[in-house]
């Protein structure tokens, strides 16, 4: 068998060292350049439009004002508290909701009797938007942390439950038959075959749940809180501090983007055989 380097050498020799068609390489470089310019261009344009006098600068502050507001927010010491409060709600809710979703998804996916008992109920509750629960959550839990966690857990749970349930049911029957023929005891089938077979589905469900946990965080903090990124956005709005409102939005976008990227990287490692 030919190894990579000698194959590359041969291709280089046969194509006079160009390897690829030259226009495709040029196109690729152009794409990278445009990609690198995307954000600076957008921010520059925003700055120009805000300062041009055609819009109200108080309602539509330029990026420099937003940046100054964020710096001030950080310097006041509130930023760290807000960030930690929001991250705590999202992560705790995600972990609890995810764990419950996986557990019940395995149970309903594996045992038809449990599925018959719970699936109808879950299918009725699942489509109700978590935000619709805000009023009742306030009645039940007041403005406590429990209520906020409840909302995030609720949002995460159903997505993860459904994808786990489907994943467990879609485990390749062939793998199960092969494992049976190799003497795999029924009680070890779950950990050896079913869980790993369902893992790609579970991971997709969890990744969807990452963004859902941020949606529900917004609902939870708007309903009344004492700290948090979305809470701060609301306060800033009431004081007409539009710079901080936009800074809060950018922060929210950034942390959910980072969370999603981190999760994607983690998922790739967990389901490496895909």
């Amino acid at each position: 068998m030919q190894d990579g380097t000698s194959a590359r050498l041969e291709i280089a020799l046969r194509t006079d060292g160009r390897g690829r068609r030259p226009d495709s390489a040029r196109l690729r470089r152009l794409n990278i350049l445009v990609g690198a310019l995307s954000l600076p261009l957008f921010i520059g344009l925003w700055e120009l439009v805000s300062r041009s006098g055609t819009v109200n600068m108080v309602l539509f502050p330029p990026p420099t004002v937003v940046a100054a507001a964020v710096l001030e927010w950080i310097r006041s010491g509130q930023f760290l508290g807000d960030l930690l409060a929001s991250l705590f709600r999202v992560t705790t809710g995600f972990i609890v909701g995810g764990a419950l979703g996986i557990l019940l998804g395995i149970l309903t996916g594996q045992f038809p009797i449990i599925s018959s008992l719970l699936s109808p109920l879950f299918h009725i509750l699942r489509p109700i938007p978590p935000i619709a629960f805000v009023p009742i959550v306030i009645l039940w839990f007041g403005l406590s942390e429990t209520g906020k966690l409840f909302l995030v857990v609720w949002g995460v749970f159903f997505t993860v439950w459904l994808s786990t349930h489907i994943g467990v049911q879609k485990v390749d029957r062939g793998l199960i038959r092969a494992a049976l023929m190799l003497g795999t005891p029924r009680r070890q089938m779950l950990q050896e075959i079913v869980l790993l077979g369902a893992l790609p589905y579970i991971v997709v469900g969890l990744r969807t749940a990452v963004s859902i946990s941020f949606y529900t965080l917004v609902a939870a903090e708007l309903a009344g809180a004492f700290a948090g990124i979305v809470y701060r956005i609301e306060i800033a709005q009431q004081n007409l501090q539009t710079g901080q409102v936009m800074g809060g939005l950018a922060t929210l976008g950034l942390i959910s983007f980072i969370a999603d990227r981190l999760f994607a990287a983690l998922a790739e490692r967990t389901v490496w055989w895909r």
């Binding site: 062939g174 190799l182 003497g183 005891p185």
Partner: peptide, 30 residues
């Protein structure tokens, strides 16, 4: 199914998350 009867299917049905060695070692491990 019993371990003194082995079976090879039309599709290999290998466990995708196990290396070749771990796939083959699965039966003895079980």
């Amino acid at each position: 199914p019993r371990p003194d009867v082995g079976m090879v299917f039309q599709q290999p049905h290998l466990f995708p998350w196990k290396s070749v060695r771990r796939n083959i070692a699965h039966g003895p491990r079980m």
